[in-house]
């Protein structure tokens, strides 16, 4: 395998890589670069692809746009609502699934299903679950004497509905990753902790949680990035609208709307780069703190 690289062999290698490279360059690299430049197009004829003026005006526009700030705020709210809860719930379920229980395989499949189903299809089901009159959720709440909530039409409840859907949707993936992490923990630590007098809760707190921290760290980074990019769920759950009165408008929805709704490509690109910067900063902060969790 360690042959000397010759021109012939390098060409051959390039040939093998070519299909993948073409796809990546066309659909990933080119749009990334192009949109970066686009975010500086202030006067642009997209029919003829002619740029008359460049500048920072697009950034100025979005920073002065209250809708942009609102969508950014909504996105932050969404991240804060989804990520911690999703991690805690999936950790608990993964721990349970890691025990010797009956039908373990069945449960794993059930929890993994949301991850492999289409967001659009699932959102339709959830629209029914959230339905204020015929919805299952309100029916159950009714059993406890809670009067029906207008999940999808009341601006105060639109974001919680979105958070519930997103948590449910992300569980499967997180659980699988957590299960893999749990299985990497040597059973000896649990035996040792038992001998050292640790009960089940103490073992979870003192062995599982710290030894799982690299996995938790990975999941939190992935979840935060994915949550900042939330769009499909919003679009599908509220039927193409960003929630009642824009109450569930996230930053990607804002970008989408600027691009396809208002055909303002420069502003959309600028907003996309702001989002990129926000995610980048969050990830850097996480990496900084992440150094401490790895033992």
């Amino acid at each position: 395998m360690n042959d000397k690289p010759t021109l012939n062999k390098t060409l051959k290698a390039v040939l093998y890589l070519l299909p993948a490279l073409v796809i990546i360059v066309t659909f990933s690299i080119y749009p990334i670069v192009k949109s970066f430049f686009m975010s500086f197009y202030t006067d642009y004829d997209y029919f003829k692809d002619l740029v008359y003026a460049r500048g920072l005006d697009n950034y100025k526009v979005i920073f002065e746009d209250p809708e942009f700030w609102k969508s950014l705020g909504n996105t932050l709210l969404f991240v804060v609502g989804v990520v911690p809860l999703s991690i805690i719930i999936s950790l608990v379920i993964a721990t349970l699934l890691n025990q010797k229980i009956k039908f373990r395989g069945l449960f794993r499949t059930i929890y993994f299903l949301p991850f492999v189903t289409s967001v659009v299809a699932v959102s339709i089901v959830w629209r029914w679950i959230f339905h204020s009159q015929y919805g299952v959720l309100n029916y159950f709440l009714g059993l406890f004497g809670i009067s029906p909530i207008n999940w999808l039409t009341d601006p105060t409840w639109a974001m919680p509905s979105l958070v519930i859907l997103a948590i449910w949707k992300g569980l499967g993936y997180n659980i699988i990753i957590f299960l893999a992490g749990l299985q990497n923990i040597n059973q000896q630590y649990y035996l040792a902790a038992k001998i050292d007098g640790a009960g089940a809760w103490e073992r979870f707190k003192n062995i599982t949680v710290p030894l799982l921290s690299p996995t938790t760290f990975f999941i939190s980074i992935v979840s935060i990035i994915n949550s900042f990019k939330v769009f499909d769920e919003v679009y599908a759950l509220f039927g193409g609208q960003p929630g009642p009165a824009g109450s569930a408008e996230t930053i990607v929805y804002y970008i989408y709307n600027k691009f396809y709704g208002e055909w303002d490509f420069g502003v959309a690109s600028a907003a996309a780069y702001v989002l990129f910067l926000v995610i980048f900063i969050f990830t850097l902060i996480q990496l900084y703190f992440g150094k401490k969790v790895n033992y």
Binding site: Y189, L191, K194
Partner: peptide, 20 residues
Amino acid sequence: IEPENREIGMVFQNYALYPH
């Protein structure tokens, strides 16, 4: 009696020291 209540100490083959 569960191990945690047996008043025993144990050294494992690979020591099982808590790595964190």
